[in-house]
């Protein structure tokens, strides 16, 4: 039976993060334990300050864990694709140059890198903006570039920290469809932090809900809604029930 299950992309065991501060330190996260199979789309919900960003930064190797373990499928140096709330593009690089940054850092020959980046430009639908500078892009376009940059080096996991948080509602919902399509096309494992229940229900296979600080797992909920997920889905009983469950879990603290 176990051979039928997809291999694990990520295993997190008793992970705990404390930021050093003047007193005993600020216990931001954990202990938390969970596993993510390859190609699963997982969303993380939770009150602000519950350590969601901290979790992603620890997974990306930006923070040392104080306790516990993080294991990726690829044992050595997992490749990370990270998208933040702000696009974090380099203003002196064109769209194409921003996208090929991860390849350049890996030392890929320039021509090959440009070719691969150009494929990603197509994937996110920015053909005519290859040579534009970030200052000429709208917020939604900039986030597409950030997404392309996070995908170009074929990462083991895509970490998204409220990637659409700074976009207007209309653009955001258009980006959900885009992200869904890209996730299916590239077959990526995704861990995405969001504060929007609808966003989680439109995108995720599974939602983790964190408690207030220190963040601990309060709920691990599979989302069996059929795909592709359309706007009308909002008004189905199944959607309503899941939304209720998530909302209750988030608000348990209050």
């Amino acid at each position: 039976m176990s051979t039928l299950l997809p291999p694990l992309a990520l295993r997190v065991q008793n992970l705990s993060i404390t930021y050093p501060d003047a007193n005993a330190g600020l216990h931001a996260l954990g202990p938390v334990s969970f596993e993510i199979p390859t190609r699963q789309f997982v969303c993380v919900l939770g009150p602000s300050g519950s350590g969601k960003s901290t979790l992603l930064r620890a997974l990306a190797g930006l923070l040392p864990p104080n306790a516990g373990q993080v294991n990726f499928l690829s044992p050595t140096n997992p490749r990370i694709g990270f998208v933040f709330q702000q696009s974090n593009l380099m203003p002196w690089r064109t769209v194409l140059e921003n996208i090929l940054l991860p390849l350049e850092l890996e030392g890929m020959p320039r021509d090959l890198a440009r070719q691969k980046a150009a494929e990603l430009v197509l994937l996110v639908g920015l053909e005519s903006f290859e040579n534009s500078l970030p200052r000429d892009l709208s917020g939604g376009m900039a986030q597409r570039v950030a997404l392309a940059r996070a995908l170009v080096h074929d990462p083991d996991i895509l970490l998204l920290d409220e990637p659409f948080g700074s976009l207007d509602a209309l653009t955001r919902e258009r980006m959900w469809a885009e992200l869904s399509r890209i996730w299916q096309a590239r077959q990526k494992t995704v861990l995405m932090v969001t504060h929007s229940i609808s966003e989680a229900l439109f995108l995720a296979d599974r939602v983790l809900v964190f408690s207030a600080r220190p963040g601990r797992m309060r709920l691990d909920l599979p989302i069996p809604l059929p795909r592709p997920r359309e706007d009308e889905m909002r008004y189905t009983p199944a959607f309503g029930k899941l939304a209720r469950q998530l909302k209750d879990a988030i608000e348990e603290d209050r």
Binding site: G61, I80, F82, F84, Q86, L101, H153
Partner: peptide, 22 residues
């Protein structure tokens, strides 16, 4: 910008690469 430094580090950029590219 700190987030750009974090981006570079998440891409396993070396200190020299961070100096040169960022």
């Amino acid at each position: 910008p700190r987030p750009l430094t974090e981006l570079m580090r998440s891409l396993r950029a070396s200190p020299w690469q961070i100096l040169w590219h960022l």
